[in-house]
């Protein structure tokens, strides 16, 4: 019971690092992929947040990015192991094309996450931990406080620059 909760928390931290790193590597905070993402960034900035961080949040909303890739990869590993994760990567790729996303953050994230998660399942983690962990991770970014999350993301973005 407690062990599983700890596993979930650890998975949350791992997937948080994973998807934020991939997203920032693919320059998501730089510019909004679609006008909708820009509008969300604008609103977050108006609420006291950071524009670059807001842009990244907008991009996460508007297209399956690395976070979605991680989630679906976790799902894929949960239902079918490595092939499932790769299938999830394919689905994310299709999703990216549907959502008018020029980048490959989601696909890369999914493939990367597949192997990371599979590796962790070998050391005692369950894939379902990663599903819950990813949801917690996205909650910390998108769901708790937009102001603080966007400032944090903005600071990370400036580090990369």
């Amino acid at each position: 019971m407690l062990g599983e909760l700890l596993h979930i928390l650890a998975a949350a931290i791992i997937s948080w690092i994973l998807f934020v790193a991939v997203d920032i590597f693919f320059k998501l905070p730089e510019t909004g992929g679609v006008v909708g993402a820009t509008a969300i960034a604008r609103d977050i900035e108006a609420g006291g947040g950071d524009l670059a961080g807001g842009t990244m949040m907008g991009n996460i909303v508007c297209s399956p990015d690395a976070s979605a890739g991680t989630l679906l990869a976790a799902c894929g590993v949960y239902v079918a192991g490595i092939p499932g994760g790769l299938a999830a990567a394919t689905l994310v790729f299709i999703g990216n094309r549907i959502c008018h996303d020029p980048g490959y953050a989601g696909t890369t994230g999914a493939i990367l996450a597949t192997f990371v998660i599979y590796g962790f399942t070998l050391v005692g983690f369950a894939a379902s931990d990663f599903i819950a962990g990813m949801v917690i991770a996205i909650l910390t970014i998108q769901g708790l406080s937009h102001t603080h999350a966007s400032r944090l993301l903005g600071r990370l973005w400036r580090v990369r620059e």
Binding site: V34, V35, G36, R97, I98, C99, H100
Partner: peptide, 8 residues
């Protein structure tokens, strides 16, 4: 006139 109308 939004982007997804071209891709989706």
């Amino acid at each position: 006139q939004i982007e997804v109308m071209e891709s989706a």
